[in-house]
Design a protein around this nucleic acid. Structure first.
Lengths: 139, 139
DNA sequence: CGGGATCCCAGAAGATACTG
DNA sequence: CAGTATCTTCTGGGATCCCG
């Protein structure tokens, strides 16, 4: 009985994986995971999304202060890329000096939730990974 | 009532995000998401994990055939990196010619499940992203 | 068969200076 | 304040050759 369940699990996983690769042609020649990953797999997007998720709205220099180490250029590039994909909105207030506010869209908040799930898994298993890494280094 | 629920949701999200950053110091100066992402955020790890997840066990050249476009070097590098982190096992059979089998560990299978969840979200929302990208391009 | 070692390059990211 | 422009630096990954 247990064996059957485990076997069923396996088959489901295999089907899902097959589905991912079936869709490859339709979606600009790339599997959806890779495509999504391209959106936040870079060096700064995650931090940007997390900060906007925590603070709800932030100005350019506020973000720059919160994301330690990021350069002006990379913050600009990152925000433009997130905006392009509809994950972030950019609102310019025509004042002097200018004020620009960034927020997550609903889509961006959805992605944030996925990231947090991934973070949960990561926190649960990070120690195993660190241990494995150390074992590997000692061999 | 509904407003309170939404507000509760928000607070939960904020707490989670704060937790991620609280742990930064303890975990080699990096938040766990970034650390995990470093494991499969590269160009080939995902495909490797997906293939091993689908086939259960694979030899070096079988993998190379399944992952179109990958070079010998990058397959080696990718597999070593996954092995180092305890996501993949490498078994050498001392025959002539040599035979080497790769499999996902339990940890690797756990990560695979996370990836599949991400894929589910991706498939649901990829079209929104593509639309947003097109709108952005036309402005 | 399953790699290791070496060379090389494009594109990502940092530093710095300037601007509406 | 919120960028843009330009230059340089760094790194991931491809190509090639070799080996047990």
């Amino acid at each position: 009985m247990d064996v059957t369940n485990i076997e069923n699990q396996r088959v489901k996983v295999q089907e899902k994986i097959n589905n991912i690769f079936d869709d490859r042609q339709g979606l600009s020649g790339c599997c959806p995971i890779k495509d999504i990953l391209g959106r936040f797999g870079d060096k700064w997007s995650i931090y940007t999304i997390l900060m906007l998720g925590r603070e709800e709205k932030l100005r350019f220099n506020e973000l720059k202060g919160l994301i330690s180490g990021i350069s002006q250029r990379m913050l600009t590039v990152t925000l433009r890329s997130l905006e392009e994909d509809g994950l972030v909105t950019r609102t310019v207030y025509p004042e002097i000096p200018p004020r620009v506010e960034y927020r997550l869209t609903e889509l961006g908040q959805g992605l944030l939730l996925q990231l947090l799930q991934l973070a949960d898994w990561a926190k649960l298993h990070i120690q195993e990974i660190l241990d494995a890494r150390q074992r590997y280094a000692q061999q």
